[in-house]
Design a protein around this nucleic acid. Structure first.
Lengths: 234, 234
DNA sequence: TGTATTTTTTTTGTCGACAAAGAATGCGGA
DNA sequence: TCCGCATTCTTTGTCGACAAAAAAAATACA
């Protein structure tokens, strides 16, 4: 297995390299395939992707802009650590965004939005049924992202996406330690949310979004306190 | 004035170039010195700053990450247009963030935060007195950013900073057409907000933050509708 | 004159190379 | 053996150059 870790050296289209590296690295970071705190080697990546350091660097700058990696001047760049101390702030923002986006979706949704949302819900449901933790996390994020899109506020949607992305790492941590079992309760809650959005019931959407968010926070919070009593590194 | 537009060619420290270009370009964009929609020439910037295209490019990638410039693949990069159609969404998010950050500041502020906030308020007051529109906009943003920092939620603070940055361009547009006169009312409202934060009066902070935001929105909204009747390009 | 096609020009994306800044290593003296 | 200093090594930041893409200009043709 001399070069099992190197990507295929196909001819890429000019300009596609950065996106390729960016997408893959982002996924690997969010799925915890790259451990928080681990170093990132530019030249290794360059040879792995069969390109020069320049496009690699560009992708890294983008990731740094999103806070997924950290760059020490003149010295190593590494995968950002998960900020356990700031977790409370994170969940605070996440719950608020759950509320706001669900509420706005109930106000502004169009027919095609519902279709889109239902598609994602079906994928989420499948992931739950097949006990695929990574898929659950990703499809859940996509489901809520679709709701945010239906709310027609690009600022909220962008912020929410960022939060959901950051959350993927924490959720991964969570499901790892719970043998990847997840309450089907989330599926039901999603259905209720969809119903409220379809009925354009803003108050119900607001309430359900809030409850849904707090429910998740509570679950993770339980894990968190246990971890904190043990050996979480920050 | 052969090279009046080129920067001094002093020896920079290794690694400082990107930040230099990034900061300056960002300011020029937000202060509307670079018109929305205008093209950005990498080689021109390179010669202007006396460096190669590589660090320029890195700065541009960062700006693109913040949405301040847009990059067409293989073709020109330009200063982002102000999204007048999405203005409603923008103000919606802005008001919410005014509320949330002020509210959190009332909850979590420490003694040193108040000092910091008061310093910014003094600078804002000075700017209003001397009718310096650019300074007003910048110091106002800094004031609210300081409040957000006192709220101890990095997610809200980051999002809010981004909104305030984007808003600088709209405000600049606004004050340009109003001969740079600004109601001293804002100064008073700021004082009320500070008092509420100092008293840890969460309810009052929430209410004042909301009112402050809506007040600004209303003022700009008046301008906007007038513009829309005229010749705003989007 | 107007339109389609080729040629030139401009600008971007990528590369390999090199020098600066740390980090790691080796050496000498106590 | 342990510490301070010099040297080597590794990794980053920057550069100049070149090729691909698209736009602009020029040409051919009706």
């Amino acid at each position: 297995m001399a070069d099992s870790d190197s990507e295929q050296m196909v001819e890429r289209k000019r300009g596609s390299g950065v996106k390729l590296v960016y997408d893959l690295l982002r996924d690997e970071i969010l799925d915890l395939k790259l451990a928080p705190g681990s170093a990132i080697d530019e030249v290794a990546l360059a040879s792995r992707f069969g390109m020069s350091r320049t496009p690699i660097r560009e992708a890294l700058v983008r990731l740094a802009g999103e806070g997924l990696i950290e760059t020490l001047p003149n010295r190593s760049t590494m995968v950002s650590n998960i900020d356990f101390l700031g977790m409370h702030a994170y969940f605070d923002a996440l719950v608020l965004m759950y509320r706001v986006t669900t509420r706005l979706a109930a106000q502004h949704r169009r027919a095609e939005d519902l279709e889109n949302i239902r598609t994602h819900q079906a994928e989420f449901s499948d992931a739950v049924r097949s006990q695929d933790a990574l898929a659950m996390i990703a499809t859940n994020a996509a489901f809520h992202s679709a709701i945010a899109a239906a709310g027609r506020n690009a600022y909220y949607a962008g912020f929410f996406d960022r939060l959901l992305g950051e959350g993927r790492r924490m959720l991964r941590l969570y499901y790892q330690s719970y043998e990847d079992r997840l309450p089907t309760r989330f599926v039901d809650e999603h259905e209720e949310i969809i119903a409220a959005i379809e009925a354009r019931d803003v108050a119900a959407a607001d309430r359900l979004g809030k409850a849904h968010g707090e429910q998740i926070v509570e679950q993770i919070g339980r894990l968190l306190t246990r971890h904190e009593r043990q050996d979480i590194e920050l």
